[in-house]
């Protein structure tokens, strides 16, 4: 297993970890963090797979990731502001517990 695959598998692990937390956690802040962890996993996977070349890595995934990081940051900011507004509007920044009978 090469270094590229090691990093790619780590990316997948991060993605799955984030997805799990996204589903399990009720608090919205934790969900936002979970989405960020998922995003980091995808970036890691893309960059890792870009290095499977003889000489210099493939620049296309790198370009996608560098723009993607900035977009992810702005999307996170938007999500946080929405959460903040929800809190100010008297709601809770948390999804209700599911009733099981």
């Amino acid at each position: 297993m090469t270094t590229a695959f090691f990093y790619a598998l780590t990316g997948i692990a991060l993605f799955i970890l984030g997805l799990y937390a996204l589903i399990i956690q009720l608090h919205l802040l934790r969900k936002i963090l979970a989405i960020n962890v998922m995003g980091s996993g995808v970036f890691l996977l893309l960059i890792a797979l870009a290095t499977r070349t003889q000489s210099t890595p493939d620049p296309v995934p790198q370009a996608m990731v560098i723009t993607g990081i900035v977009v992810a940051v702005s999307a996170t900011a938007l999500a946080l502001v929405l959460m903040r507004r929800l809190l100010d509007a008297g709601g809770k920044a948390k999804l209700p517990e599911e009733k099981t009978d």
């Binding site: 997948i12 499977r52 003889q54 296309v60 995934p61």
Partner: peptide
């Protein structure tokens, strides 16, 4: 799902220049 993704990644060819040659050209 994690296992499936890992399997898919491991099945990828170890060497794939992708578009790096096109860009370099």
């Amino acid at each position: 799902m994690g296992a499936g993704l890992a399997y898919a990644v491991l099945k990828l060819p170890a060497e794939a220049p992708g578009l790096s040659k096109t860009v370099a050209d």
